[in-house]
């Protein structure tokens, strides 16, 4: 079996006094699709953000592609360019067209030629089904379209793993499904994914494992069927009953 893509061992993180992550142990192998859910403030966003070290952890080890993340590691960009990240608020570059957004990282970080970057960009725009929007600015697109562009932007770097930090939470309800469809297709193509989301339908459809977090700790981790049908922990049951009522 090959090395895991992401490995967290005994990870703890504090914001001042506040204990944000408690003793997290967590492994992602190639091709894994993992959904993380939990109430707000449970540390799920913090967890994915430590995976490309947008946030630092204080205790334990995090390894991505076998490289340990720590303060003195120097060139973290080597790790980050293989880890795609999709944000709740898209964070597209508003002063660049869709095409420029997609071409930027491959050209500036990977050193791809302009022609090659353009071809890659067009290929992924086809894949997220908005090739006709190439010359628009992000501000001219709907929320769902922007998020799909953001997914394509990450894919252009040909990442080994994709992190999704509540990708549908800022969207109007009618746009959620177009983004989820894109993510489901991505999962079917074999992408390794770690998704923080409340979309339980998505979790059932694609996840290999569902993780439930509360108060900074992983409370329960199981395959989706057992997770939804027979949750073990009381808090998991509470949480599921609350979000599934709707």
């Amino acid at each position: 079996m090959s090395k895991p893509i992401i490995e967290m061992r005994g990870v703890n993180k504090w914001y001042g006094e506040y204990h944000a992550l408690r003793d997290i142990n967590f492994v992602v192998n190639k091709g894994d699709k993992i959904v993380i859910c939990g109430p707000s403030g449970s540390g799920k966003s913090t967890l994915v953000r430590t995976l490309n070290w947008l946030e630092a952890h204080q205790e334990g080890t995090i390894k991505v592609n076998g490289i340990e993340l720590h303060e003195k590691m120097g060139d973290i960009d080597k790790v980050r360019m293989d880890v795609g990240m999709v944000f709740q608020n898209f964070n597209l570059f508003p002063h660049m067209t869709v095409l420029e957004n997609l071409m930027a990282a491959p050209m500036w970080v990977r050193g791809m030629s302009e022609k090659e970057a353009r071809e890659t960009a067009m290929q992924y725009l086809e894949r997220v089904r908005i090739p006709e929007q190439v010359d628009k600015f992000p501000g001219q697109l709907s929320g769902g379209q922007q998020q799909r562009v953001a997914i394509a932007r990450s894919l252009c770097m040909n990442p080994k793993v994709m992190l999704f930090d509540e990708p549908t939470s800022a969207l109007d309800p009618e746009m959620v499904s177009e983004v989820l469809d894109t993510m489901i297709e991505l999962a079917k193509d074999g992408m390794t994914m770690v998704c923080v989301t409340h979309e339980m339908g998505f979790a059932r459809a694609v996840a290999d494992r569902v993780i439930f977090m509360d108060a900074g700790a992983i409370i329960e981790e199981n395959d989706p069927k057992s997770f939804f049908d027979s949750p073990q922990n009381e808090r998991t049951k509470d949480f599921l009953s609350q979000i599934l009522l709707h």
Partner: peptide, 16 residues
Amino acid sequence: KGQWEASRALGFKFGL
């Protein structure tokens, strides 16, 4: 700060 985060996540260095 989301602009910084997106840039970092894509592997851009500070100057870039």
